[in-house]
């Protein structure tokens, strides 16, 4: 019995198996889902949800003065903030479900959400 290592059936099985595993990557490792709403919180309490489809500017009264949020083409960003470090402004445009940005001195944060599962921050066991 000196057949080769792989029979025809083996080649078929391994090929199908590899195709299935590839399909799993396509199914479960898709890029992040586009968000459709942004929730704005001040000092931890929500002050409203806004759809990302409608372009507009929002002025949010933070604890250090007004902040400017810009919603444009399904994206949102902090455009102006009274804080010193401008970390929220440097966070730039956000568009994926699960994305978030905050101005801690002003105690203002935004969280994006959309349909489907939210992107993971971390997985631990």
């Amino acid at each position: 019995m000196t057949r080769g290592l792989l029979s025809r059936g083996d080649v078929l099985a391994v090929t199908l198996a590899a195709a299935c595993v590839g399909g799993l990557y396509a199914r479960f490792w898709q890029p992040a889902v586009a968000a459709d709403t942004v929730e704005v919180r001040v000092a931890g309490t929500s002050i409203g949800r806004y759809p990302l489809q409608i372009n507009r500017s929002l002025t949010v009264e933070g604890s250090r003065g007004p902040l400017l949020l810009t919603i444009e083409d399904g994206r949102v960003r902090f455009s102006k903030s009274p804080c010193r470090n401008q970390i929220c402004v440097h966070s730039g445009w956000l568009s994926h479900s699960g994305d978030a940005a905050a101005c801690l001195p002003s105690r203002v944060s935004i969280t994006l959400s959309g349909h489907g599962s939210e992107a993971l921050d971390a997985v631990s066991f």
Binding site: R3, L5, L6, S7, G9, A13, V14, A17, C20
Partner: peptide, 14 residues
């Protein structure tokens, strides 16, 4: 189209 050790092993592992 019989499966030998490698094919059986891959299918059973999956």
């Amino acid at each position: 189209w019989g499966l030998s050790a490698v094919g059986l092993s891959v299918l059973s592992a999956l």
